[in-house]
Design a protein around this nucleic acid. Structure first.
Length: 615
RNA sequence: CGGGGCGUAGCGCAGCCCGGUAGCGCGCCUGCUUUGGGAGCAGGAUGUCGCAGGUUCAAAUCCUGCCGCCCCGACCA
């Protein structure tokens, strides 16, 4: 029940009454947050620390693994509501808004137009694209009161394609690029790392529609360039890497990776040239060297009791893993296939999948292994196997390999491909390794870890075909639109920025992402002179359009300093008795730790100039 | 879904083996002293011990089931 007398809309409360310990001196300068003097997207709002909802914590909940996750909790940015579902508190939301704003500006600049699509989507659309069946359990499905099926959108290809096919009819209306910043829901099997990998998350997704291949490539390139600008503006150390584009082929998929040891993805890159790809995609240069060289010797079967692993076989026969052939049995859409790589290499399933052109590739179970090899797991080999055999390039031309004998507790030695068994096809099927030669320039490949913050992908006609998004070309003939999709994980970008920008004391925001650019810290609010000087500087900066906090809390200086460091605010203006007696204040730069002493009246302009040059 | 671990005050944890009065640090409240890097002293509040059964005179503790959370493996911004 609403009691009228107490009804109070936000913003009408009597703010000055609620200030404690801060004398209300005349404001220096005008108060025009969004005026022409603004150097930054002013977010406004409560900025007196004593009134803010900014719960910082000295201790971290034990379930936070990543540093960024810990710091986001400690700095009062997020709180967990349920597994993989987080609330953003004001400080965290400000960081999110910074990224969103940069993304918006660059998307708009690249010619994309913002839309806002429903998060709740009808099953029919997904049935049309075929993903109602194929998307799997990550798609959260439910029924409404009329028993109609819906899902929470994990992505919006269906919705956007539906929208576009209804509205765009002719080549004259193409190309178009539409984007939105929306909350997505993916019912992840295992959410983890806080906001880095959660179920509900904010994402910018853009979709381009073109009339022809050339146009689609152009759209792709524009997005690629926009992404470079976005992550550069965010102040991140990132790298675009080639990603596996599945059936579409070509290099029309790039992931934007923020370099971080804590990243979930490994990427291969060349120290010399620009080549960079994720591990799944990274091509392995055709090899020259191989183990097992020399004249083919007679094939021989040896007893290797219990040697079910490469290591065990090597130890038993006293050979190196590179002299052994690893035979893995997969089922490709239900059909068994033997995949051969060297014992010291790893099979790259994505490459196998692309080679075979199958939808589902799985390691075979014990029953299938027995059926095609006639032996239990651990002794598979290609000689006499009842399955198609594909092999990595590294096995070609070389002889005298060690290989499973398809017989329990036995291996073959001196195996020669071609003589002893037939390889259906040689291909690049292994995972690239550190120090492998770069497929482009031949220099050494290095491996590093990264966080995927963005992905650009040429979709082709996958959705437009399934959902009949077509247009009439200039000859009046019906054509299928060519699509691209382009995502950026907003929350993840913030987390990645923290992952890359922190120290023992807390976050060290890159200026463009900082929720506030400056914090004014009077060392003791009970001393009117300090409080007054602080207030003056605070008002000046706010009036100039900066987002700035006045730490007017009646706390000890140490507490305020620790909080300011934890929050990672780029500039701290310390107003203390000793310096103020000389008419000065101190400015501490969070990133460098550098301290500058300046007259009170110059502090504001100093900060302003530094913020200007840093944005 | 398989393997491992954890649920005790807002947060971090002890207590559980060997059943009997629920405890420590931080935070919070009051007072005094302090006031440039998470202050000191004194006093104080806070718990359906994850939930539901069971065993027992008695369960945080032993048993069973369930739920939640975290970590390791197959998916992805």
């Amino acid at each position: 029940m609403l009691r009228r007398g107490q009804d109070r809309s936000p913003g009408t409360s009597n703010r000055p009454d609620r200030r404690r310990g801060m004398p209300c001196s005349a404001a220096a300068g005008g108060f025009k947050p969004n005026g022409p003097a603004a150097v930054h997207r002013y977010q406004g709002g409560y900025m007196r620390y004593s009134e803010m909802f900014l719960p910082t914590a000295r201790e971290v909940p034990s379930d936070a693994e990543l540093i960024s996750h810990q710091l986001m909790i400690r700095a009062g940015m997020i709180r967990k509501l349920a597994g993989g579902i987080y609330s953003y508190l004001p400080f965290g939301l400000r960081a999110i808004r910074r990224v969103e704003q940069i993304v918006r500006e660059e998307m708009n600049r690249a010619g994309a137009q913002e839309v806002f699509l429903p998060m709740v989507q009808p099953a029919e659309l997904w049935q049309e694209s075929g993903r109602w069946v194929h998307y799997g359990k990550e798609l959260l499905r439910f029924r409404d009161r009329h028993d109609r099926e819906f899902c929470l959108g994990p992505t919006h290809e269906e919705v956007i394609t539906d929208l576009v096919r209804n509205e765009l009819k002719t080549y004259r209306q193409l190309p178009r690029n539409l984007y939105q910043i929306q909350t997505k829901f993916r019912d992840e099997i295992r959410p983890r790392f806080g906001v880095m990998r959660c179920r509900e998350f904010g994402m910018k997704d853009a979709y381009s529609f073109d009339a022809d291949e050339e146009g689609a490539e152009n759209s792709y390139r524009r997005m690629f360039e926009a992404y470079q600008r976005i992550f550069t503006r965010c102040g991140l150390d990132f790298r675009p890497v080639e990603a596996d584009s599945g059936s579409i082929g070509g290099s029309f998929s790039h992931e934007f990776m923020v370099m971080a040891d804590s990243g979930e993805d490994a990427i291969a890159f060349c120290g010399d040239c620009r080549y960079a790809a994720n591990l799944e995609k990274a091509e392995v240069a055709r090899p020259g060297e191989s183990a097992g060289e020399g004249e083919p010797l007679p094939l021989r079967e040896v007893h290797t009791p219990g040697a079910k692993t490469i290591d065990a076989v090597c130890a038993f026969l006293e050979v190196s893993p590179s002299a052994v052939v690893k035979t893995l049995i997969f089922t490709a859409d239900g059909v068994p296939v033997a995949v051969l790589v060297r014992g010291d290499h790893e099979v790259n399933e994505a490459k196998v999948k692309n080679l075979l052109g199958c939808d589902l590739l799985e390691l075979a179970d014990e029953a299938v292994i027995r059926a095609v090899t006639g032996s239990p797991r651990g002794f598979a080999g290609a000689v006499g196997i009842k399955a198609r055999v594909v092999a990595d390039y590294s096995l070609r031309g070389a002889a005298n390999w060690v290989m499973g004998a398809n017989r329990e507790d036995y291996h073959l030695v001196n195996v020669a491909p071609g003589r002893d068994f037939t390889v259906t096809e040689f291909a690049d099927l292994r995972v690239i390794r550190e120090s492998d030669p770069c497929p482009r320039c031949g220099q050494r490949i290095r491996i590093a870890r990264g966080i995927e913050v963005g992905h650009v992908f040429k979709l082709g006609t996958k959705y437009s075909k399934a959902m009949q998004a077509s247009y009439l070309d200039r000859n009046g003939r019906e054509q299928t639109m060519i699509m691209g999709c382009y995502g950026i994980g907003i929350g993840r970008t913030v987390a990645a920025a923290i992952e890359q920008n922190h120290d023992a004391d807390g976050i060290v925001w890159p200026l463009p992402l900082a929720p506030y650019q400056a914090i004014v810290t009077p060392v003791n609010v009970n001393e009117p002179a300090l409080a007054e000087a602080a207030e003056r500087i605070y008002r000046f900066l706010e009036g100039q359009g900066l987002d700035v906090i006045l730490d007017d809390r009646d706390e000890r200086a140490g507490v305020k300093f620790k909080d300011a460091d934890l929050l990672g605010i780029p500039f701290r203006i310390t107003v203390g008795p000793k310096r103020l007696a000389e008419g000065n204040v101190e400015i501490k730069i969070r990133r460098s730790g550098e301290v500058v002493t300046l007259p009170v009246d110059e502090a504001g302009t100093f900060i302003l100039a530094r913020v200007r040059e840093g944005l």
